[in-house]
Design a protein around this nucleic acid. Sequence first.
DNA 1: AATGAATGAGGTTTCATTCAT
DNA 2: TATGAATGAAACCTCATTCAT
Lengths: 214, 214, 214, 214
Amino acid sequence: MRDTPPAGRRSATARRPAAASPGNKHQQRTAATRRALLQSARRIIARDGFEACRIEDIAASTGHTRGAFYAHFPNKEDLFFAIFEQEARRRVEKIRTVLESRTTSQDRLAALREFYVDRISDRQWAMLLLEFKLFALRHPRLRPKLAATHRRLRASLRLESVDQTCDEPKKAALEAILSGLSLEHAYDPVRISRQQATAILGSLFDTLVPGTCA
Amino acid sequence: MRDTPPAGRRSATARRPAAASPGNKHQQRTAATRRALLQSARRIIARDGFEACRIEDIAASTGHTRGAFYAHFPNKEDLFFAIFEQEARRRVEKIRTVLESRTTSQDRLAALREFYVDRISDRQWAMLLLEFKLFALRHPRLRPKLAATHRRLRASLRLESVDQTCDEPKKAALEAILSGLSLEHAYDPVRISRQQATAILGSLFDTLVPGTCA
Amino acid sequence: MRDTPPAGRRSATARRPAAASPGNKHQQRTAATRRALLQSARRIIARDGFEACRIEDIAASTGHTRGAFYAHFPNKEDLFFAIFEQEARRRVEKIRTVLESRTTSQDRLAALREFYVDRISDRQWAMLLLEFKLFALRHPRLRPKLAATHRRLRASLRLESVDQTCDEPKKAALEAILSGLSLEHAYDPVRISRQQATAILGSLFDTLVPGTCA
Amino acid sequence: MRDTPPAGRRSATARRPAAASPGNKHQQRTAATRRALLQSARRIIARDGFEACRIEDIAASTGHTRGAFYAHFPNKEDLFFAIFEQEARRRVEKIRTVLESRTTSQDRLAALREFYVDRISDRQWAMLLLEFKLFALRHPRLRPKLAATHRRLRASLRLESVDQTCDEPKKAALEAILSGLSLEHAYDPVRISRQQATAILGSLFDTLVPGTCA
DNA sequence: AATGAATGAGGTTTCATTCAT
DNA sequence: TATGAATGAAACCTCATTCAT
């Protein structure tokens, strides 16, 4: 495909900030539709890949038609980013919450390790991350936007417990390792089972993040 | 048109076993074209992804038209597999050759480590492998075919030097780590430079393959 | 792309049973478009042949584009069958209606004869029937489907007035003769004019269907 | 397809009048190739239809490649006409020979009847004739050429035995009936068996050609 | 907000034909 | 004479997107 030249941001109708306001019945249904679309999209993009997935499939799996999709998202690409933001943020929140409940640095590191290792079970997110990276890699036009988003996310997750002992490349490596193992396990679960992946993930975490177990 | 009798009646052209015979001018040109198409395909598939890449681009980048492509490959998918086989085999041969030139088990392990770590520089192959796995994952119909190919390749690379000390899941993990790091580095080379990736790759190799450094 | 799960996952659009409900404006336009496409298709398939005719021509002659065609028919072949069913049924209804208005067996036979002979003027249908048979002949895969349709149609036209005196092969022969004469007349109207064809058709009807004139 | 605008008669290489001269080895092989191509073409065109049949299939079924085809025929269309001429002529010769061996007018008529009825067994020729007529009908540009050929053929078969009693439209009708029955029998041999077709053919011959049986 | 008909660009594939050998 | 690689013009079909309702 290669970077489709602009094509013009279209008359996006819907961008309500998804206010926490429950609103009236109408607004509630609208929000529900949007939520359903996002959920279906996650599943189907993870399953088919972003390029190959069809908007019709996403809409249909929520019981709606294409029109509903375009009432909520200006185009396929924006949906992609919406998912990315939402899901990444969700995970950041979660780990932050978990960490805040721990008191000692040791505890926090243990929690972090557990959180990391458990991500092997979240295949959907692994596939989505893969798709995002591939997409970004192949659409240079979007690199800045994506990079900014990423920076923002990482900034919001400043973890003293780790940042003292684990530099950025190592964190990147941990992400990369997780991504690689997730795909490998998905591709050939006989060759590398979840247990095995989990074990390796743990041991590599320990290798790269000093002071974990010793 | 005719009802395609099951097993395909359009016996694809181009199935000479690529005989080592240099042959006449005709055969030489044929082989050259095929080689050129494969090379272009590798580059373009790695760049754009398999689904997104266009046969026209592959052909054009060799100075030919789509028709030339179809004179050599029955369809896009078969090209994909041809590339996979060829490239995987190429790498297996290489490592085998390297290993055979080493005498002690220690030497062989060192060679293996070097070979492994160096693969971080082969971005094209990393991207192709990623594409293959994603494609296989998403097209269950092809899983058996792909799995068989994979098995064959691995069987042809029975490495005593490693097999004694490194079990299958660990080898899978090493592959997965390499794949993940390659993508991560391609995606954000600032966050993780090649040197950093190389270093991490080495250290993880040592972690997973016992007896390497000690 | 996804491995098309056997039974076709692209659930074609357009399968409302063309409810008699005039419905809203949407439905009206839909029905009108579909009707227009069918009409154009009849004309163009009869003119160019099924294999040779282009969907673009059919769509364009209704003032639409290819896309509109595919919104109404999953593919070229299905259009073909839709036409077949519709037109065949139309003719069956007509003859049935005519026959029901006659009281004596003599009258009915006369009506049948007239109906038969008049079909020489319906060149379009003659050409379509020819195309159907050739297509069926050449695509064994569709034989069962077509045969079933045919049987259904014939069953729905059980004509006591004729069935008593005219066996199946003779009816087949009458069809065949009509088809042959239609083509011959279309091919060389000088050699055999419509009047001549009509006369011959009548006389052969009398020959094959006893008790017609005597 | 529709009348492809001229496109220019190409540098037709081969048009030797297929001289009766046995010639040398070379010439003999050439003639054999041509003969083989014509034979394959008859079979495959009758099977697949002219538009749908592939030159590659024709050539392949003689053990040659496309190139051989183009060494003998300037293009697909010319092959079609070559077949038509040759086959039509062949049949004219045959009936002429048969008729010349009969002495009484009665005998000749009987021979004619037999010849006619037997043609139901020659499905290939029936299908070819059908294809010719459809093609001519759909390519007005060729009508004159085809018509002339037809006239020439008919002139060469001036049959006093019949011409006295059977006018042109009736002869056309007989052809048409044969064509129609052939197709019908091919399409649904259960509905109308060969025996039945034969019987009907005979009886219609008798109806249309007076003085046959009486 | 949602429907779904329609558009139109673009993709894969087929095949008659050409041409260097 | 014959090969077969290559061309290039279609053909069918898909799908993101628009728009009247």
